[in-house]
Simulated assay, not measured.
Amino acid sequence: MTVKISHITHIDNLASILEHSCLWSDSKRIKLGLANQNIGYSHIKKRRLLRLVNVAAGGTIGQYVPFNFCPRSVMLFVIHKGHPDFQDGQDRVLHLISDTDTIRLSNQQCFFTDIHADLDYAEQIDDFDRIGELDIQRIINEKYWQDFKEEKQAEFLAFESVQWVTIQQIGVKTQALADEVSALIQTAQHKPEVVVRPQWYY
């Protein structure tokens, strides 16, 4: 069973992603000394650099590139509202879309969780025959998620890096941002489809 997945990042990070032809994990990006426009909570990112993984390649969650099983994630809502580490809102945030099978073809060290990966009681699963246990249609893709916030934040995680060629679409909020993204990827060998999807935003 292949499942669509979504990674969010700021457009300011796209040039670096294209230069390296991949998305790096936070841990690897820090080791490489790469600049990054952080849109997440800094304290959670630091915690994920220490939280252990007991499946796939082991290590820590911060050594993996995270994806949600839906666009319009809970974290995007936090970004939309603004938080102490990022106040500029969601308008310049990109959804990088792929699917579980495509990424696993180039990176076999992947796993998924049943809830937000940073939680102590999240189950780490590298048996992808179990991915059907996630209620993607009725819970993870649900527009109103207050009653199952943790379940909506289930994650797919790929060790160290995700190849740019595995990204199939780039979702943006406005046509103006789509035009910016199209200009940035114009000279790239791999050009994902750029789609305007305001429904993926708050």
Score class of each variant (00 low, 15 high):
Ala57Asp: 00
Asp129Cys: 06
Asn13Phe: 09
Gly171His: 04
Lys81Leu: 08
Ile140Cys: 10
Leu94Gln: 02
Leu105Ala: 08
Asn68Ile: 00
Val172Arg: 05
Ala117Ser: 09
Leu14Pro: 15
Pro71Tyr: 03
Ser21Leu: 04
Gly59Pro: 02
Glu151Asp: 12
Glu150Asn: 12
Asp91Ser: 11
Phe159Gly: 04
Leu94Val: 01
Val3Thr: 09
Tyr144Gly: 08
Tyr202Ile: 13
Pro84Ile: 04
Phe112Val: 07
Cys110Leu: 02
Tyr144Ser: 12
Gln87Asp: 11
Gln199Val: 08
Glu19His: 13
Lys31Ala: 15
Asp120Ser: 13
Pro198Tyr: 09
Ile103Arg: 03
Leu52Gly: 10
Val78Tyr: 12
Phe69Asn: 01
Thr60Gln: 08
Leu94Trp: 00
Gly59Asp: 03
Gly132Glu: 11
Leu96Phe: 09
Ser42Arg: 15
Asn141Asp: 11
Arg138His: 15
Pro66Gln: 00
Tyr121Thr: 13
Tyr41Ile: 07
Leu105Lys: 14
Val55Trp: 01
Asp26Ser: 13
Lys4Met: 06
Asp126Gln: 03
Asp135Ser: 14
Leu14Ile: 11
Lys143Val: 13
Val74Cys: 01
Phe67Asp: 05
Ser182Val: 12
Asp147Ser: 15
Lys4Asp: 12
Gln87Tyr: 03
Ile79Val: 15
Asp179Met: 13
His95Trp: 02
